[in-house]
Design a protein around this nucleic acid. Structure first.
Lengths: 100, 100
DNA sequence: TGAGCATTAAATAATACAATTAAAAGTTGA
DNA sequence: TCAACTTTTAATTGTATTATTTAATGCTCA
């Protein structure tokens, strides 16, 4: 693979990240989080699933280092972890979503 | 979802596309195809899997409209289908892969 | 301590995924 | 037309994951 930039391990880790993003609910959550940090309850009210289900999807994303969280009293605020992910999500949004 | 740009169906179809890309072998193939069209045999020689296995991964990608193919005599040449996918792959490459 | 917010665990069901092998199909040139 | 070459398809097998729901638990503040 003379010209390739990816290393074997990068192929694996990149596809793991994509796998985590590649779920309708998690994609929704991420697009919501692009706008800024949100509590689990806010996400739940936005999409109407159960808190438990949302929380589990958030765990999947957090395990892959896609999002981070911050605790404030009873609330847990989630946000996109870094600029790389923000850029990727922005690109996906721009490419695959028609304008309002 | 007042501010959201994605529609329900776009979330589904976008996550389907990501799911297809999110496999180490398919990611490899796609990064190889960024450079230009390649025959199945060329891809096989590049990565050392079986022709049959490569062909099946190519089918997954083609079903999702990520790549297209062109027949020439005995050979089948595959390439990235459109600029949207090229842009997405380019972004991923830039973000998640260190420079050579 | 009770109310509100969130996580975790357990259970279940579904199904999907990937790799291998073997057979088949299309193309070319002798 | 036969043989060689390239690719696709089908069948098989084994494995692992995936998602959702329900229930129980943990934490924080008033």
């Amino acid at each position: 693979m003379a010209d390739m930039i990816f290393s074997e391990e990068q192929f694996t880790s990149t596809s793991d990240i994509l796998k985590a993003i590649a779920h309708p609910t998690r994609l929704k959550i991420l697009c919501f989080l692009i706008e800024g940090e949100r509590s689990v309850g806010e996400i739940e009210r936005e999409f109407g699933s159960t808190i438990s289900n949302i929380s589990q999807h958030l765990t999947v994303l957090r395990r892959m280092d896609i999002i981070k969280r911050r605790k404030d009293a009873n609330f847990m605020f989630y946000s996109v972890k870094d600029d790389k992910i923000l850029t990727l999500l922005g690109t996906m949004k721009k490419l695959f979503c028609s304008v309002k």
